[in-house]
């Protein structure tokens, strides 16, 4: 993963989460993963295309997703309903969009696909031939793993 891409994603995740949730957040150590990875259960995906191709995953447990949706909407969610789902998708969209804006300023041209949301148990994700950068983010509401897998178009 090109080093110039890393910071925009980390910074965008940080500033967006801080702004919309108003809580303390801290970033864990970044690392790389290849081969298939288990997912936490609630995952929003945003595709990237342009100078690069790939996708960004925002991965969290159902409790974390509910807690985030509750905080963002200012009401308590008991079940993961449509509004809660839309909230998580929107969060993913906001973070990715801000990262892409930062990348535009650096001269890299990216486009986004609309976010999609997956939920389920024992999910795995496999990226063929692309290694993924994992940005773990810890908050009082729970843990989000941002999983960025992009590659240059040759």
């Amino acid at each position: 993963m090109r080093v110039e891409y890393i910071n925009p994603f980390v910074e965008a995740a940080f500033s967006v989460l801080k702004e919309v949730l108003g809580t303390e957040i801290s970033r864990g150590e970044l690392y790389l993963k290849s081969s298939s990875q288990p997912m936490l259960g609630t995952t929003a995906i945003v595709g990237l295309t342009g100078d690069v191709e790939g996708r960004v995953l925002f991965d969290m447990s159902l409790q974390t997703a509910l807690a985030i949706a509750s905080t963002m909407n200012g009401e308590e969610f008991k079940s993961f309903d449509d509004l809660a789902k839309a909230t998580i998708s929107e969060l993913a969209n906001m973070i990715t969009a801000q990262a892409v804006t930062k990348l535009h300023d650096l001269g890299f041209k990216f486009d986004l696909t609309p976010p999609a949301l997956f939920t389920g148990e024992n999910m795995e994700v496999l990226d063929t031939d692309v290694e993924a950068l994992i940005v773990p983010i810890d908050m009082p509401l729970g843990k989000i793993e941002i999983n960025v897998a992009v590659r240059e178009r040759n």
Partner: peptide, 15 residues
Amino acid sequence: IVFEYHDILHHNEYP
């Protein structure tokens, strides 16, 4: 030059 954060033990997607 393209500088990448990459683990050489993973798949090396280069020409």
